[in-house]
Amino acid sequence: MKPSAFAYARPRALEEAFALLDKHGENAKLLAGGQSLLASLNMRLAAPEILVDIGAIPGLDGIAVRGQTLVIGARTTHRAIERSEAVAKHAPLLAQAAPHIAHVAIRNAGTLGGSLAMADPAAEWPACCVALQATIVVTSKKGERRVAATDFFKDLYTTALGAGELITAVEIPCVEKGERHAFLELVRRRGDYAIVGLAARARLKGKTLSGVQLVYLGVGVTPVQAKGAMAALEGKTADDAAIRAAQDAIARDLEPNADIYTSAEAKRHLARVLVARAVAALVG
């Protein structure tokens, strides 16, 4: 199980990377942490002509707080996010989600930007970014543009990234007073992709919820905002009736696809269980 042959470039600056992407077009693939890409190359599921390793380009990693925004460089590893005090303080959702990503050796290499660009619908970061209403900073030789996470994930493994573009950073609004986060996953083995997962966020005043975000992973071709359930909880007291209303709305919100082990019906059922547990966690 060896990859087919490819060329390799390790640009030292973004401009060099853009030039390589320009030159090779669709035959080039960006290599960040490589934790998904290299597995698929080993299995010969993909056969790019050239890998453009962005590992030596300065300025792509690191975690910083700028005003009310947490800025995470695209090449920041899962492990760095997991260990970051700034993340734990300003975006606890990410800190909660990070340990669910695979295993330590993979978290040491895999990156935030890589995960977002890969856009696996069962991955943790895409759902978290949507729930946090993060902004994805996308750069090309034409300059920078910012894409709301809610607009970024287009289809299965498909994002708003255009030819010649790469993710350079993610901007996340810092958690506000009274804001609560909860990240839940149902996995059969620790570190696996979830059957169903939920990134949840709300402001809590007394027991009243507002600014509710419920974003599921593993139930569609992209992270899925459960808008009906969000509306059912918005401005409501987090009681059994509100939870039941949210659960009822889930049936309309989600059109999950079956996977090899779990039917669509079971996924929908599990999504309903998770929303109740998420609300409990948010108010707990």
Partner: peptide, 13 residues
């Protein structure tokens, strides 16, 4: 005994 099979046995799905 997958979650699917247990949920079915319980009549949850």
């Amino acid at each position: 005994f997958t979650p699917e099979r247990i949920l079915k046995a319980l009549g949850k799905i």
